[in-house]
Amino acid sequence: MIETTITQSGTAPAPEDFLALVVQANDLLKTLVESSNLAYQATWQVRGGLVPQASLKLTCLNGSRTIELSEPQLRAKKSLERTLEKLRWDILGLASAALGRDIDRRLAALAVEDE
């Protein structure tokens, strides 16, 4: 499952076709994690200007990472799919590391209680 938000930032509004690309990329991300048991949050920030840019922050449990995407990167669907898949793995790595730290912390607390 995934919760997504797309917002515009900066003074210059992004062109319509760029926004459409972001929406498509967001749909692709939803398809990738739709059957997941974990709760993901994706936040897109779209900036206009001479070279429109989109930043995507993906969060799951305590893991979070942000990537920047330009128009050509959003257009190349296959490459984009691989980028999003890599981001997903990065997040899973961070989430499992955070979970591991949490367990270690609890075990240390239990050891102190036992003493």
Binding site: N37, L38, L61, E85, R88, W89, L92, S96
Partner: peptide
């Protein structure tokens, strides 16, 4: 394959959680 493995990893993380 990567997507399948990610799904398995997600399941394991969910169980751990």
């Amino acid at each position: 394959e990567s997507q399948k493995q990610a799904a398995v990893a997600e399941e394991q993380i969910a169980l751990l959680q």
